[in-house]
Simulated scan of single mutants.
Amino acid sequence: MKNVLITGAAGFLGSHLCDRFIKEGFHVIGMDNYITGDPKNLVHLKENPNFDFIEHDVTEFIKIEGGLDYILHFASPASPIDYLKIPIQTLKVGSLGTHNLLGLAKAKKARILIASTSEVYGDPLVHPQTEEYYGNVNTIGPRGVYDEAKRFQESITMAYHRFHGLETRIVRIFNTYGPRMRLNDGRVIPAFMGQALRGEDLTVFGDGSQTRSFCYVDDQVEGIYRLLLSDYSEPVNIGNPHEISIKDFAEEIIKLTGTDQKVIYKELPVDDPLQRQPDISLAKKLLNWSPKIDREEGMKLTFNYFKTLSAEELLKSEHKNFENHIRN
């Protein structure tokens, strides 16, 4: 049985990865410090003999007993409400945390996959975005703490690959959604669904003409799994290329939820990307991967999950109190 360490294991995507690797016959070690992760995302694995959990901050020295075959680094705030509230922690997990995990991979002779993001492209001047595009990022803007953390993460990963011969993989994740997303985390899908379920009008920033491309979590996990087991070391886009404007998407949510709310408009945040669509030609060629779940099906599954949440959870404006985690 191969051993895999998954950081950010209590997060939305990390918890789904834990499920997938256990299903594939791996022994999974989950790691999270719960700064944005949620323990309930892993409660179903508590008694699983093929799952162990370590509560730990990856920016601190990491010690794992025994052998490791694979590491998946998914520890990072990933939503605007998080990385704007805890900017220094976001930078530290992308830099110090990544450095620690690359060192661990080197010591254990493990293959490591780094979770990067479409945000490395910034507000793109090329559309759709290919892996060869270097991006258009404001390094000192409020979103720079996340964008630059991820760009540095890619750089140091490739440095370890070239200098130490480390087996590395880099996935550039485009907007992903599904069950276990947090309501009100600043991302468009949980924000819209939370507003609809609470009977509030849906808030669109800007004029709503900006676009996004949404990938269902099962498709995303499949792409990540195939990339980890591939022989390709450079970044690969994994996302759904079906693009939609935010305004049209808000109307879709109103129709899906059967509510009669209207759409209201507010000022567009600084450096918010106007277009976001992955070119997945490389993933198709290398991994024989493309998304299978269309947005209509995926959104129904996601909405059914949000409908199971309690009234208290729906009314929360944030997942938890961050103050205990903010140090320097």
Rank of each mutant, 00 (worst) to 15 (best):
L5Q: 06
L5R: 00
T7E: 05
A9F: 10
A9G: 06
G14M: 03
L17Y: 06
Y34G: 05
I35M: 15
T36P: 07
G37Q: 09
D38H: 06
P39H: 08
K40V: 14
N41R: 13
L42G: 10
L45A: 00
K46F: 05
P49N: 13
P49Y: 05
P49F: 00
H56A: 11
K63N: 14
D69L: 08
H73V: 12
F74C: 14
Q89A: 09
L91P: 03
G94D: 08
G94W: 03
H99R: 12
H99W: 12
L102F: 09
L104E: 03
K108M: 04
K109V: 08
R111V: 04
L113P: 03
I114E: 07
A115K: 01
A115R: 00
A115Y: 08
E119D: 14
V120R: 07
V120I: 15
P128R: 14
I140H: 13
R143L: 12
K150C: 07
S155N: 15
I156A: 06
Y160M: 07
R162S: 13
G165F: 07
T168Y: 03
V171F: 08
I173V: 15
G186P: 04
E200N: 09
S209V: 10
D218Y: 03
G223N: 06
R226C: 02
L229D: 08
D231H: 12
S245Q: 09
S245T: 15
E251S: 15
E252L: 11
I254R: 12
L256C: 10
T257F: 07
T259R: 14
Q261C: 14
Q275Y: 15
L287T: 00
N288F: 02
W289Q: 01
R295A: 10
M299L: 15
N304K: 14
S310A: 06
E313S: 09
L314T: 12
